[in-house]
Design a protein around this nucleic acid. Sequence first.
DNA 1: ATAATATCTACCGTTACGTCAGATGCAACT
DNA 2: AGTTGCATCTGACGTAACGGTAGATATTAT
Lengths: 246, 246
Amino acid sequence: MYSIGQFAKKTGLTVRALRFYSEKGLLEPCFISDAGHRYYNDASIETIQKIVTLKYLDYSLEEIEEVLRNEEQQLIESLRFQKLQLEKKRNQIDRVIASLDQAIEIGKRSEVIDTTIFLSVIFNLLKEDEQMDYLKSIVPDELVERIYDFYGMNIIESNQKYIDLANRLKQAYIQPIQDENLKSLIEQLFSLIPQDMVVELAEVLKDYNDIQFDEWLFPTPFTKEEEEWLMSQVERFGVYGGVDDE
Amino acid sequence: MYSIGQFAKKTGLTVRALRFYSEKGLLEPCFISDAGHRYYNDASIETIQKIVTLKYLDYSLEEIEEVLRNEEQQLIESLRFQKLQLEKKRNQIDRVIASLDQAIEIGKRSEVIDTTIFLSVIFNLLKEDEQMDYLKSIVPDELVERIYDFYGMNIIESNQKYIDLANRLKQAYIQPIQDENLKSLIEQLFSLIPQDMVVELAEVLKDYNDIQFDEWLFPTPFTKEEEEWLMSQVERFGVYGGVDDE
DNA sequence: ATAATATCTACCGTTACGTCAGATGCAACT
DNA sequence: AGTTGCATCTGACGTAACGGTAGATATTAT
């Protein structure tokens, strides 16, 4: 017979955890003294080995209780199910890591450090699919796919350029620069998408006058004021008649 | 200005979540009416996009708050750290999946369904490293490594055979079988490790009389009674003089 | 007998909200 | 103006698996 402390040492679990299992009925001590002290024996070891094993396999305590009660044989089925769950988790983590990789790569190449710009770029990476669906409800599917294909192939460079341009434009709003420089920046902004696609896009959007892209789905790093200023400059320089969104 | 419900729809978050962020000071509404109703504007959208982005990247709300406060530039460093954390998580999941694979493979090949036997086998798989360390404190390192090398190369088959044998032996305890059959089972049990290693092991262990292996680290699917009975039979048949542990 | 250590039973805290209950508020319709 | 119906509020409890503490009692060692 072991006291709870001895048992904890032997199994590597904490006293608190053992008490918790005792409360939950997952592992009842073989004997409880009048003073309420818990004592365990070798049979307890067998049970707790099962518990530790299943915990390692990422079973919840509730699931473990079920396995311990059901001496039935769907254990292997249950293991298969468990594996599926873990694979889902892993795939999700892989997706997030991939996003982080892209973000880090983009960040490495820009000297810029503006959190707002940077996070809006990452947000766009994440919401790409939703953005496409949304755009397809307005613009012909084929055009949307063409644009995103192009974008996808230059995703790192596009975003790096975009970040730098956005940063300079925000600067230019605070501290005005020469017209020709400003015009050049705006032209570079539009050149992120090939000219023919921009023209085509402008063509389609002409039908909807004054269309507003969903400001949730298409974040820009610009404030409302900056954005209005930017649009006015675009019109002033007459670049492609006013198409703006990335 | 959006009411909390409208804002929730726009952003895809729940009303409760928005209220929670409001409480935590993570995203304060731009305006709160006398009645206490929360209203949001486009500036709120910018903030919540950051929050959503960082949440996707597996930041905790506390970490997000830090990033939002610190307009400092360690964001990319922070992303790298975040990636490291996720890679650790993923590696752990990978290890567990590998264990599950082994377990499923072993389970598939045995017709046996005894949970106790099966889980003790998996536990042994998990604790292999600790077991080796423990054994090395008693038996020469080189012998331990030789045994585990052999075991590791036949891990699936060894365990499958072990499960079947353990199952039959447990049966034989309940319902006695012919001596020659029992002897055969016991011999098969010992043949799981090559004869020469068993002999060598017995040689070393002869010095310690009546050694007890840590019953936590080396679980057997047998009860104390079954185990004693098994040992007595081993001695009766004179198989290798009484070495038992797997 | 006394001191030191172990154990007990509570109860609160953690994360990021979900889920009520009961009280108001607001917009629309009669 | 009154009523209906929906939106929103605060406040509280629940989640999973314990960790940490306090104050009381038990066991063990000296």
